[in-house]
């Protein structure tokens, strides 16, 4: 390579591995991230053409700004930022003698560690939402989450005096996961932790038990509140259930006063091809004839919505957080704890 090109090349490399470049890149990441809060995310392409006009709308769609936190070039930006910080840090490695320089180094490497953890999670984490009725068991393998069985023993809602929910708790057992068993009562801020697997209290609802008798055959159905359950009668019949735990009526119709089962009633709709052809309101134990069958509202109970998540990267991210704080402490020790720090 002729000398001029060599110098030009070296200047470019020198610029790319400089602090200035990394800081500009950081600012760019910040600006792009901010953009994602101003351009509504997750809308179809037509939305942006409508809202921003043909010019800007086309640009938005072309650059996938409607999903910019997950588009490849955003990830690339973060990766390059991580690389830039890494390169800068390695250049200063041999100058790291004092608390200040070591602290700064640790802080910057921590950012790279956090990004690495995030990438690991991105590639390898798995998650599933499972609604379990009390006493129900599911196999983790059914959700691609490895070995083991998850059982919900019981679910409870604890209420404040004003009937606002105070806490949701699930007593669960995870057995045979990586040759270990875990038993815990989890709640909204306390998931079950089993290695890289965590189980979170995510949701809840009502599970309704309905006895369905057609001609001479009897079935017992477990249907979730608001669900539509197809009856497979060949006539495109289905039932939709709406549970009113604390049933009351006023001039506007039926509603539930509270979410506690003080006065439980079940709203049952018979649907044919999606349209309501019959309706009934049942107290527990009551039976009604609709269409060809009779329906009995047997019982009601809770189901707990659990999120099962496998995430191998999150521990690395948290380690990065610790390093980040240690780095700050070292870098600014003099300013924090000494009179003449600067």
């Amino acid at each position: 390579m002729p000398d001029k090109q060599k110098v030009g090349y070296r200047n470019l490399v020198s610029w790319l591995s400089s602090m200035k470049f990394a800081v500009y890149l950081l600012i760019l990441v910040g600006a792009v991230s901010a953009l994602g809060t101003i351009i509504p995310q997750g809308q179809p392409p037509a939305f942006y053409l409508r809202t921003y006009g043909d010019g800007i709308g086309t640009v938005i769609n072309f650059l996938s700004l409607n999903d910019l936190y997950h588009i490849w070039w955003f990830y690339a930006l973060m990766l390059i930022l991580g690389a830039a910080i890494m390169v800068c840090s390695l250049q200063r490695l041999r100058h790291a003698r004092s608390l200040i320089t070591v602290g700064s180094l640790v802080f910057h490497l921590a950012i790279v560690v956090i990004l690495a953890g995030a990438v690991w999670s991105l590639g390898y984490s798995r998650s599933a939402m499972v609604d379990l009725a009390e006493q129900q068991t599911v196999a983790l393998a059914d959700y691609g989450l490895g070995s083991g069985q998850l059982t919900l023993n019981s679910f409870a809602i604890d209420y404040y005096p004003d009937l606002q929910p105070r806490q949701y708790t699930s007593d669960i057992g995870l057995t045979g996961y990586e040759q270990r068993n875990y038993y815990q009562t989890i709640n909204v801020n306390n998931p079950l932790r089993a290695g890289n697997l965590k189980i979170y209290q995510s949701n809840w609802g009502w599970m309704l038990k309905i006895r369905l008798t057609t001609n001479d055959s009897t079935q017992v159905l477990d249907v979730k509140d608001y669900d539509v359950f197809p009856l497979g009668s060949g006539e495109n019949h289905a039932i939709r259930v709406v549970f009113l735990p604390d049933y009351a009526e006023d001039e506007h119709g039926a509603f539930s006063r509270t979410s506690q089962p003080n006065h439980p009633y079940l709203g049952l709709s018979l649907l044919q091809s999606g349209r309501v052809v019959d309706m009934a309101l049942l107290a527990p134990g009551e039976e009604v004839q609709m269409g060809q069958s009779s329906f009995t509202f047997e019982d009601f109970s809770y189901y707990s919505g659990l999120q099962i998540k496998y995430d191998p990267g999150v521990n690395l991210v948290f380690a990065g957080f610790v390093l980040l704080l240690l780095g700050l402490l070292g870098r600014y020790w003099h300013l924090f704890f000494m009179r003449e720090g600067d």
């Binding site: 936190y69 801020n189 306390n190 979170y200 991210v317 948290f318």
Partner: peptide, 13 residues
């Protein structure tokens, strides 16, 4: 850390 503990996701943009 709190977000991870509640929703299983430490960053959701």
């Amino acid at each position: 850390v709190w977000a991870e503990e509640v929703w299983g996701n430490w960053w959701s943009w």
